[in-house]
Design a protein around this nucleic acid. Structure first.
Lengths: 334, 334
DNA sequence: TAGAATTGTGCAATCGTGTGCGCCACTCAC
DNA sequence: GTGAGTGGCGCACACGATTGCACAATTCTA
């Protein structure tokens, strides 16, 4: 039913190979033939069968994107960057989620391998990375985003988490906020560790002690922010300043505060209760509370774009012996 | 480099066809041979080349999902439902965004066609649908989600918007809220029209007039909610009740209120200013303000799942003459 | 003007699988 | 013991495209 290259060939009175070459603007095809072929292509509504092409050329022009969850604004902002960059190059994107499980991640990667993707962009589910080696060995380039993993090293696009959280903490300390409560992520993730490092470094550089009783680790989900804020609010004295290491935990924190109806700091001005808040990540269309003291913004779309650039380089065969690691700067907004 | 069926055949001392059949548990292959083949498959780490298989069988086990934007929590919640359902069936998902443009939508659909997807799930970019016919004619089943289009009819999974917004409005009116300001979406979209219909119907059934000076249309993005709330807030008397027809415009509304520092209705209790708010859509991990009077919740993941069910039925060849339209119920939460 | 170089096109092989058909060997019934 | 039936497997082709090579026709060079 669908029109193939042979149909075009027949209709144009040439061979299939000529059609193929004409469409690729091969120099050895005469201008007349080329035009005639293209005309017929339009008339018949022919469009190349990428499956057949992939089989022959061993290049599918599809890349895979695996991330922990689909319904996560951070990952999808990165995904948007990836998709935009890929579309410009005529690539398609297969999206999978690992559900934050290494087993699922492996399963998804195997599926992608079967689909013969030309490369993979991965936001790792966990800190485990040894299962990635097999795919790399099979010749599939992999670029990591956001997090690094143990036991496997490859190209990666990361942000300067240490610097971002260092700068934010500095600002807080400079305005006299001390001690600062801290809600971090699961320390098995590099991002969580790095952000905490920056937090501590800022204290050290100012000759201040971190109040360890105020340092907690969640899991980057809103529920943990909610629970930890609840715990914090039961402490006395009530902590005046809080740094939350990602957006979702921040949402949980605010949600708790809202639900508890804690009074605002300055009535009629700040929507926030009697606390100075700082956090990682801002979303134009998601964050209802924009009057946070300090926000560390990550260049999410750019991360996706850079990852695509790196990946396509590898696919083009621009093989480099050592893995490349890009560290993008965060932006501090106060 | 990658191991093919021939390598397996050689190693197992059989022909490629036998390997193929053994892996499909063909009854005419002896148990011994089958086991030997499967053993070799494991040893060599063979995994089927889906590109070749697709070419031969004319079934790619890939389906395409086109939505207006990737970085949209509603669409991605639907996407999650789709992905989960597909993975259970061993399908992969190519995700594209149309950027809310019919031209882009067509381009993405063409790409999907080239990739030989078995079917397409589409959240239409606009009300325009005539360009979809060609893909349907080419034998690619299409299932619409959320919105219907003009000029093309096919299977669709929708929610009962009229009923949802009717019920919410009823609740508001019953508690004495009147008049109710309304911020709707672009009326070229069926969802926007239906939600407004429900809003008006509730008034009519109660014998109340809609105050037309309080009815506005945005475009479902936060900016329009922001702007329209600004306009509303300049009116006198200040409207006491507002129904917002989707989540993002609601975010814009709240954002304006927060930024302006409007006083809360009941200090220490409601985080909201002197207004009773109602809106469409709730997100567990996104909505900071959960103390809205009335929320119409859509079964987003279920929409994705149902769409997959419908689509796979069509792909299996379960051809029906007339398009199926599923209307899922919304849930009212007060 | 003859041979070389160039241009334009077709033939045929190939990518990795799936599958209809045929062949061989064995079993079974009479 | 012979014919039919059947279980187990391989041959060969096809899917739709790309591409090295060959070849005819044309142009160029000396």
């Amino acid at each position: 039913m669908p029109v193939t290259i042979k149909d075009v060939a027949k209709a144009a009175g040439v061979s299939a190979s000529t059609v193929s070459r004409a469409l690729q603007d091969h120099p050895r095809i005469s201008v007349q033939t080329r035009q005639r072929v293209k005309k017929v292509v339009l008339e018949l509504g022919y469009s190349v069968n990428n499956v057949a092409r992939s089989l022959k050329t061993n290049r599918s022009r599809v890349i895979g994107f695996v991330c922990p969850e689909l319904n996560n604004v951070f990952f999808m902002q990165v995904g948007k960057g990836i998709e935009d960059a890929l579309n410009r190059e005529g690539y398609s994107l297969i999206v999978c989620s690992s559900g934050e499980s290494s087993r699922n991640e492996t399963a998804r990667l195997q599926l992608l391998q079967q689909q013969c993707v030309d490369g993979i962009i991965l936001i790792p589910a966990t800190h485990e990375g040894s299962h990635l080696q097999q795919f790399f060995d099979a010749g599939i380039p992999i670029v990591l985003i956001d997090r690094k993993v143990d036991g496997f090293s490859t190209d990666a696009v990361l942000v300067d988490n240490v610097d971002g959280s260092y700068a934010a903490t500095k600002v807080l300390l400079k305005t006299g906020c001390h001690p600062i409560a801290y809600i971090g992520g699961n320390k098995s993730l590099t991002t969580a560790r790095e952000r905490e490092t920056g937090f501590r470094k800022a204290h050290a550089d100012d000759g201040l002690e971190v109040d360890e009783t105020l340092v907690f680790n969640g899991n980057f989900h809103w529920e943990s922010g909610y629970k930890l804020m609840k715990k914090l609010s039961k402490m006395s004295p009530f902590p005046k300043t809080l740094f939350v290491a990602n957006y979702y935990m921040f949402v949980g924190v605010v949600r708790y505060l809202v639900e508890e109806g804690v009074r605002r700091h300055q009535v009629g001005e700040l929507p926030l209760p009697n606390m100075t808040l700082a956090n990682f990540d801002r979303f134009e269309d998601g964050a209802v509370f924009h009057e946070v003291a300090v926000v560390v913004e990550q260049p999410m779309e750019e991360m996706g774009q850079k990852a695509v650039q790196l990946l396509l380089k590898r696919i083009e065969g621009n093989r480099v012996d050592f893995p490349l690691e890009l560290r993008l700067k965060t932006k501090l907004s106060t």
